[in-house]
Simulated assay, not measured.
Amino acid sequence: MRKPLTIGVDIRDLRVAKTGTKTYLEELCKAFKQMDQSNICFHFLDTSLPIYTGNNKILKWIEHFKYQLWKQLVLPLKAFFKNCDVVFCTDNFVPFIHLGYQTVPVFHDAFFFENPENYGKLWLWLYKKMAIPAAKRAAFIITPTEYAKQQIHRFTQIPNEKLVVVYEGPKSLNETKSNNQPEQLLKAFSILPLQYILHVGSMFKRKNIPTLITAFAKVKKAGFEHLKLVLAGPIPPAANETDYKLILEAIKKNQLQNEVVLTGYLPDTALSQLYQNALLYVFPSVNEGFGIPVLEAFAHNIPVLVANNTCLPEVGGDAVLQFDPFDTDAVFTAIKTVLEDAELRKEMIRKGQIRLQRFSWEKTARQIVEVFKKAV
Rank of each mutant, 00 (worst) to 15 (best):
C41Y: 08
V219C: 08
K253S: 12
G233Q: 02
A188C: 06
R345D: 06
E225P: 05
T143G: 04
A319C: 07
D91R: 08
T103C: 06
P133C: 14
A330N: 10
I302K: 02
E175M: 11
L49R: 15
P116K: 10
V16E: 11
L122G: 12
R12M: 03
N254F: 11
N92T: 12
L77V: 10
P313L: 05
L295V: 05
L69A: 13
V86P: 00
I292S: 02
D36H: 08
A299M: 07
V304S: 02
A299K: 05
N179M: 14
F88L: 10
P267W: 04
Q195M: 11
A334G: 04
Q195R: 13
N180V: 15
D318H: 07
I213N: 01
T23C: 11
L295R: 01
V164N: 05
T364P: 02
A131Q: 03
V282R: 01
V164W: 05
R366H: 13
K136F: 07
P116C: 11
R12Q: 06
L274W: 00
V106I: 15
E343V: 11
P159K: 09
T214K: 12
V106Q: 01
I158H: 04
T143V: 15
T156E: 07
V338W: 00
C84D: 04
N208M: 10
L173P: 07
L256Y: 07
K177M: 15
S178H: 14
L321M: 09
S48F: 00
E296F: 03
P303C: 12
L312E: 02
D243P: 10
Y52W: 08
A319K: 01
T6N: 13
S38I: 06
L256T: 06
F96D: 03
L356P: 02
G289H: 01
K128F: 11
A222F: 10
A334H: 00
L14H: 04
L28V: 08
Q367H: 11
T90V: 09
L266P: 02
V294W: 00
K252N: 12
H43M: 12
L198W: 01
L194S: 13
P293N: 05
A217C: 11
F332W: 05
L312K: 02
A239F: 11
V86F: 05
G264I: 05
L262Y: 05
K253Q: 13
V304Q: 01
E259V: 06
Y67P: 01
R345C: 12
G291E: 03
M203S: 14
P193W: 12
K129R: 15
K363M: 14
F80D: 02
F298V: 03
A138W: 00
D109L: 10
D243M: 14
K128H: 14
R366A: 15
